[in-house]
Design a protein around this nucleic acid. Structure first.
Lengths: 334, 334
DNA sequence: CTGAAAGCGCTAACAA
DNA sequence: TTGTTAGCGCTTTCAG
């Protein structure tokens, strides 16, 4: 079974390769008769145009790469699924192809075969980003707002989101508001903490030293911080955790200590991951427009590739506080 | 800024294009001196070989496509993340590229640019599968065990898994075991129900008509079935739900009805999704080797593409029952 | 509306 | 060890 190329089809249809090419590419200047003959030949021979040859000849490349750092934990899984949903939508709408690369950090993949790159976060992929930028390949970074580099970033506004959480809690009458922060080596973690600090300050609420604890977003990492907070003489009436996992763990610790949630303790999470709704106490948390981030990123990348955008774009999308049942007004506590 | 091709580099390095090609492709028969000169020229000119030209000339294609049906619900998200983790690993190990296509069902994507296709389930993608098989493109289907078609399938052994659930429950002393099945139009749903039925029969336990209820895997879909089961005069002491979401909902309904879990009702789920561990009552459920499925699929596909495999492979991977706190021995109930 | 011919950038014999 | 020379399969002028 020999391979069928455009010439075979042309021969079978009794036309030139050019005409076949025209039919394939939907160029209108082909007589209906020829078009039919070509279409028939294509079907009969099961002809499939060679994409490499196509791209080579037309000098085009419509595939973008997306690099995703290690999927380890649940947060990343949820984050990635949501992001991918948006990216998938965008890619489909713009008729692009998506080359996926799940990286463990340093494996260099064939970024060369791609017209643009999307970094789903870059924690651990800094060198790859550098390389891509160095090569002048258009790229967009999501979830990681990089102020220093002239690169496009699409992320969620974590700072404002955290401020809103504190505002919400304060409106409920809370003043003893503690936080369990996430990793402080990434912008996300830093911003969530800063938002808390800023909002507290804005309301002239004192941030007692032990009110700022740290975890790493994972559930177990919040166990100790939560215990410290809740067994302290001066315990908070509300805790803002930088992830839903940590919030859920916090609730568990509280319950284990004989505290009632939300009666004795209000808890707010971040992410609105699936566990939030199913948790022992349905969690009030921050929803992020992750799939929008994905879709927008593709759009921006596409423009970048098309040269329709000269300067890097830096965008932050808003979040929404979703109220469930883990918070309560202080004056109802008694 | 003109485009740099291999000829430019050759000129700059004072060698032929062939030599440059050799250096790029790590062909050993190049003098150290020339190699260095080429490398320098490459760096100075920021030369990046054109992947299309490369593939065209070498007649190779090392990218595989993965098509993922609509991500709608949580189950799919979790399923996809896990699968992708495995696929990512496999692809990296085998030095393949991964073209991702998230489909809403019928959009035809550029499967032509790919040497093999992985279908992450095919619910709703039947025509695409047909087309790919028709074109003779190697492919592997996961999660969906297709007996009728000569196509490779890698899936989880749902039948045995369900049998084991019933066995587990029976060993705990339960005889009044009901089930809330999932979609019965896909093999997964059917197998989970069949496993239940088969195991019940094997133990000579009567399956009362109302003991077989149906949902669609989603949490809300189990609400009515659970209520029917639990408000029935002849209510079961154990319920096996075909998904964790449905199991969690079942627990909620039971709790709402004043039943205790696991004291008055044992519940088993399926998937071991993240919500299982965080649920109100930590859920005993079935863990599936999803990432292994992904990795194995890539391996099989690679062999298929390399012609190292003539017949389609049909493999079922085993599951594991993970015990948490939603089940209890019947004789402890009183 | 159609076709001949000139590449697209690279690889792979084949010589040297 | 190196270079010459054909293509790889398709698109795209440019005449007709």
């Amino acid at each position: 079974m020999k391979k069928i190329d455009i010439a075979e089809v042309a021969k079978a249809a009794g036309v030139s390769t050019t005409t076949v090419s025209r039919v394939i590419n939907h160029v209108p200047t082909v007589s209906e008769e020829n078009r039919q003959r070509v279409l028939e030949a294509v079907k009969k021979l099961k002809y499939r145009p060679n994409p490499s040859a196509r791209r080579l000849a037309s000098g085009q490349n419509d595939t973008i790469g997306i690099v995703i750092p290690r999927f380890a934990d649940m947060f990343h899984s949820f984050y990635v699924s949501e992001l991918l949903k948006g990216v998938g939508t965008g890619v489909e709408r713009l008729k692009l192809n998506l080359l996926l690369h799940v990286t463990d950090g340093h494996s260099s993949f064939d970024l060369s075969s791609v017209a643009g790159v999307l970094f789903a976060d870059i924690d651990g992929n800094e060198e790859q980003l550098d390389w891509v930028m160095d090569q002048g390949i258009p790229c967009v970074v999501t979830n990681h707002f990089i102020k220093e580099l002239p690169v496009s970033c699409i992320a969620v506004d974590n700072l404002t989101a955290s401020e809103q959480v504190v505002a919400y809690l304060a409106n409920l009458g809370h003043r003893e508001i503690a936080t369990i922060a996430g990793h402080l080596r990434t912008p996300v973690g830093i911003e969530r903490l800063e938002g808390y600090l800023k909002a507290m300050k804005a309301r002239d609420i004192e941030v007692k030293p032990h009110f700022v604890q740290r975890g790493d977003y994972s559930g177990p990492s919040a166990r100790e911080p939560a215990r410290r907070l809740l067994t302290h003489d001066d315990r908070p009436t509300a805790i803002f955790a930088a992830s839903d996992e940590m919030a859920v763990t916090t609730i568990e610790v509280a319950l284990g200590l004989g505290l009632r949630v939300p009666e004795d303790l209000s808890v707010v999470g971040f992410d609105d991951s699936p566990i939030a709704a199913f948790a022992k106490v349905p969690l009030t948390t921050v929803w992020q427009p992750l799939s929008q981030v994905g879709e927008l990123s593709v759009e921006v990348l596409d423009k970048l590739m098309g040269g329709k955008l000269r300067r890097p774009v830096k965008t932050q999308l808003g979040t929404k506080l979703v109220e469930r049942q883990s918070c309560r007004q202080t004056w109802l506590e008694h």
